[in-house]
């Protein structure tokens, strides 16, 4: 019986994976369009509106153009590492979605250490950048990679402490349990400062404005992917935008109650959970774009100061305060599982 069914099971798993990845890739395509349109409107211009109705086919036109271009391998490059780097970036941006719950029970792998898995995968993202920068054998790419690596490692530290704040309130590393613990109140309310720190850290972690120094075009041309063209460039781009969506999803799960409606009465609880989840992600993504349109780029020393001397001590003190409050009011959660 088991022997007969294993390929059906395998096909079912592959179907589930595709059901996550295909909408994700479409979302990435439309995020690039949304970015250009939103920033266009914020700067009182129209943005791309020619290809298709309201410019809706623009992402596909861009993709076709990129695929038609030649993939250039620089002569001095380390060819293997050069080709692996964009693939790694893209794959890492996708595999993290395995543990993201879209609704109660609607998750590919409901593992006990979901938060740690996400943290581990996002800490690997730095390798795509470093490998690209080193293998390109170019000054600009290398400097961009060094900046990016230092930045991502620095902000991961404070992100880890912020996550500990949430974990202390939940008592589990399981993402579904974290969302269920927010049924009475989203963690964004009692832990609002941590929510702000986490969101700003995700900006730095995804190399987005105002922390987009790794690709600061005024000084580094384009940073670590300056030597890439065609599909290898497109993979970096897809990876970066998929990471933005992923980070918004993580922020939603940790602080904005995941798939839970904001108020538990009609009409709010009539809308299905995945819709709420997607709406919250879209809200955060809009803030990502909004920040890019309105803030100037940070200077590098100020970026490091913000990470190490402001966020790190602040989130560390907040862990002590949160834990102290929970112990004092005797509301420390027991270990779930």
């Amino acid at each position: 019986m088991m022997e007969n069914n294993w390929y059906i099971e395998l096909a079912w798993i592959v179907a589930k994976i595709l059901a996550v990845i295909v909408p994700l890739l479409i979302a990435v395509a439309y995020l690039t369009l949304a970015e250009r349109r939103v920033i266009g409107f914020m700067q009182l211009r129209k943005g791309p509106n020619v290809v298709g109705p309201f410019g809706l086919f623009q992402p596909f036109a861009d993709a076709l153009k990129l695929m038609a271009k030649e993939t250039i391998l620089p002569a001095g490059a380390d060819k293997t590492v050069f080709m692996i780097a964009p693939m790694l970036t893209f794959v890492l941006a996708l595999v993290a979605w395995a543990v993201i719950p879209f609704d109660a029970g609607m998750v590919l792998a409901d593992i006990n250490v979901g938060v740690l898995y996400l943290f581990a995968i996002s800490s690997l993202g730095v390798y795509g950048v470093i490998m690209a920068g080193w293998a390109s054998n170019s000054k600009y790419a290398f400097l961009g990679a060094l900046r990016s690596a230092a930045q991502m490692v620095s902000y991961e530290v404070s992100m880890g402490l912020v996550i500990i704040n949430v974990l202390v309130c939940v008592g589990s590393l399981n993402l579904s349990a974290i969302v269920e613990a927010q049924r009475d109140m989203w963690f964004a309310v009692p832990l609002f400062p941590m929510f702000a720190v986490f969101f700003i850290s995700t900006l730095a972690e995804t190399n987005r404005a105002p922390f987009d120094l790794p690709e600061g075009e005024s000084e580094l041309v384009a940073g670590y992917f300056v030597e890439y063209s065609s599909m290898s460039f497109a993979l970096f781009f897809l990876g970066e935008y998929a990471n933005m969506i992923l980070m918004s999803a993580i922020t939603t799960l940790l602080f904005l109650g995941g798939w839970l409606p904001p108020f538990d009465f009609a009409p709010f609880n009539l809308i299905p959970g995945p819709i709420w989840f997607i709406l919250k992600i879209c809200l955060l993504l809009f803030v990502f774009l909004w920040v890019r349109a309105t803030t100037p780029r940070y200077r590098y020393d100020q970026l490091m100061r913000l990470g190490w001397k402001v966020f790190l001590p602040f989130s560390l003190i907040y862990v002590v305060l949160t834990a102290g409050y929970l112990v004092a009011t005797d509301s420390l959660p027991g270990l779930i599982g």
């Binding site: 250490v113 898995y117 581990a120 800490s123 690997l124 730095v126 390798y127 470093i130 490692v153 991961e156």
Partner: peptide, 13 residues
């Protein structure tokens, strides 16, 4: 996960 976070994500970088 700890091995990946600490060794791969930080030390090896």
């Amino acid at each position: 996960m700890l091995l990946v976070v600490v060794y791969v994500g930080a030390v090896a970088v």
